[in-house]
């Protein structure tokens, strides 16, 4: 009987740990995805190069922060088999990155410019995106 309780206890601990992993990743995404989306929306409405560059720097910063948090989360969970809810959150992360990449492609097409400050901001976004894929 004691052995049975012990097994149930271990199973419960494991399940809670996996649920926590999904909740933790979802919390990171819920807090940070809207920030990235808002700065992309701002960039898409820019009517001057300074507005656009400022918004692109904000996107880069928000994306770098988000990526750091996701990677920190991943490092803590790397030895765990992900639960379905965790896989769903990870898929959402990858689809979100693809959305940002699609938006960035369009912004660079619309505002094709050799301005150094804008190019530097674009490069930061590209670097963050390229290193965030393929978890």
């Amino acid at each position: 009987m004691r052995k049975l309780i012990c097994i149930f206890s271990l199973l419960a601990t494991s399940t809670f740990a996996l649920a926590d992993a999904a909740d933790e990743l979802n919390q990171i995404l819920d807090e940070n995805v809207p920030k990235v989306s808002a700065s992309i929306d701002k960039a898409s409405r820019a009517t001057g190069i300074q507005d656009l560059t400022d918004s692109q720097n904000l996107t880069a910063q928000a994306l770098e922060t988000l990526k750091t948090q996701v990677f920190t989360w991943l490092a803590k969970r790397s030895n765990q088999e992900p639960a379905p809810r965790t896989i769903a959150a990870m898929n959402y992360w990858e689809v979100f990155l693809a959305e940002v990449r699609g938006a960035q492609d369009k912004l660079e097409y619309l505002f094709d410019s050799s301005d150094p400050a804008l190019s530097a901001a674009n490069e930061r976004i590209r670097h963050a995106l390229n290193s965030a894929f393929f978890l």
Binding site: I40, V95, A98, A103
Partner: peptide, 22 residues
């Protein structure tokens, strides 16, 4: 109007990017 047309265009790019990943 410039901002509205670009908003639509960038949104279209976002959705297309998401579709590629899906």
């Amino acid at each position: 109007w410039f901002a509205i047309l670009n908003r639509i265009s960038v949104f279209e790019g976002e959705v297309r990017g998401a579709q590629d990943q899906l």
